[in-house]
């Protein structure tokens, strides 16, 4: 019975990945472009969820991790004329270093203090992007040329300004993230993180080094966020300081809460729903933030588990 459920869950996630791949052949033009973008945002949401959903640490500073990747990739391509691939790899490295440093400091706090500390660090980073306007062009931001976004891999050359290449790259990143998160959720590490979320003191008493575990969670979450930021700038060619504002941290929180914190697919679902809700409502009213606000309050009051969290609670207990 247990293996049967495991298989069903495996099939479900595989089906989502496959479905997104097949979707490219059917989607009309606009959705094709929009889904590409939302897939990258979904990677960001998955990263956020690893820390918030599984480990129970609410960060209000993930915009920083996202923009660390965004700026590392963007600035190296723009100023040093690195290739897209080099820039991408370097942003993983820088994201990793940032996550280790920030995690080591911020994890000395917990609860409300953790939220505020991450918020403050993120604010410092945001101000930094303005302070170093000479290099970043601050709020105006900078644009990567089309030529800078071509790279060769295994003797084939790819052009990231080509929509079909972009779709596949975004899909690949999202698929890998889903698989990665799925594996973590099923692993000993994942179960230990959930244990910390449920009761940190008890986990500690069971002999786990909770500080190290939480640090690992911050590192995974932060680095993956940087990866999504790097992918964003390389695919869509723009980096600016608005991505470092608290708005983008809240967006990640919103995606995760809506879709279901602590579920692999929840953040993806949340990102898709939120994006299209704003996209569609903004055609009729400029009050889409009002709607976002009402949804937030409504969710936290009546569906604190989010959509997939609620589904898991009621019907599918096996959902990772």
């Amino acid at each position: 019975m247990k293996t049967h459920r495991k298989l069903v869950s495996l099939y479900l996630h595989a089906a989502v990945i496959l479905g997104l791949f097949l979707a490219q052949f059917f989607l009309p033009d606009y959705l094709y472009l929009a889904v590409t973008r939302v897939m990258i945002l979904s990677v960001f949401a998955i990263a956020y969820n690893i820390l918030f959903g599984y480990t129970g640490l609410l960060s209000l500073g993930h915009a920083m991790f996202f923009s660390v990747g965004l700026y590392t990739a963007g600035l190296t391509v723009y100023h040093l004329e690195w290739s897209a691939a080099e820039a991408f790899v370097s942003s993983i490295g820088v994201g990793l270093i940032f996550s280790i440093l920030l995690g080591a400091v911020a994890l000395r706090t917990s609860g409300v203090a953790f939220m505020i500390v991450t918020l403050m660090f993120s604010q410092v980073f945001y101000l930094g992007t303005l302070y170093f306007t000479t290099y970043t062009r601050g709020d105006e931001g900078l644009v990567l040329s089309e030529g800078a976004r071509q790279f060769t891999f295994l003797f084939a050359s790819f052009d990231l300004s080509d929509p079909s290449v972009r779709y596949v790259v975004a899909w690949l990143l999202l698929s890998l993230s889903i698989i990665f998160c799925y594996v973590i959720a099923r692993s000993r590490l994942g179960r230990a993180l959930v244990a910390i979320r449920e009761n940190e003191t008890r986990t500690q008493m069971l002999g786990y080094n909770t500080f190290m575990l939480k640090l690992v969670a911050v590192i995974i979450s932060g680095t993956l966020s940087s990866i999504s930021g790097a992918a964003y700038v390389l695919l869509f060619a723009y980096a600016g300081s608005s991505f470092a504002t608290i708005q983008y941290s809240i967006d990640a929180l919103l995606y995760t809460l809506l879709g279901g914190a602590g579920t692999v697919l929840g953040p993806v679902l949340g990102a898709f729903l939120m994006f299209f809700m704003i996209d569609i409502t903004s055609e009729y009213t400029s009050a889409y933030l009002l709607i976002a606000g009402i949804i937030l309050v409504f969710l936290v009051m009546y569906f604190p588990r989010g959509i997939l969290g609620e589904v898991r609670h009621r019907w599918l207990q096996w959902l990772p």
Partner: peptide, 29 residues
């Protein structure tokens, strides 16, 4: 995103009217 929407959903002939520099620069690619 709005530029993408204009180009592929509304099928506009041209996009127009942006004021703030960062929106112009972000939309132009």
């Amino acid at each position: 995103e709005v530029i993408e929407k204009f180009a592929t959903l509304h099928k506009v002939d041209v996009a127009y009217g942006t004021l703030f520099s960062h929106v112009v620069i972000g939309s132009s690619p």
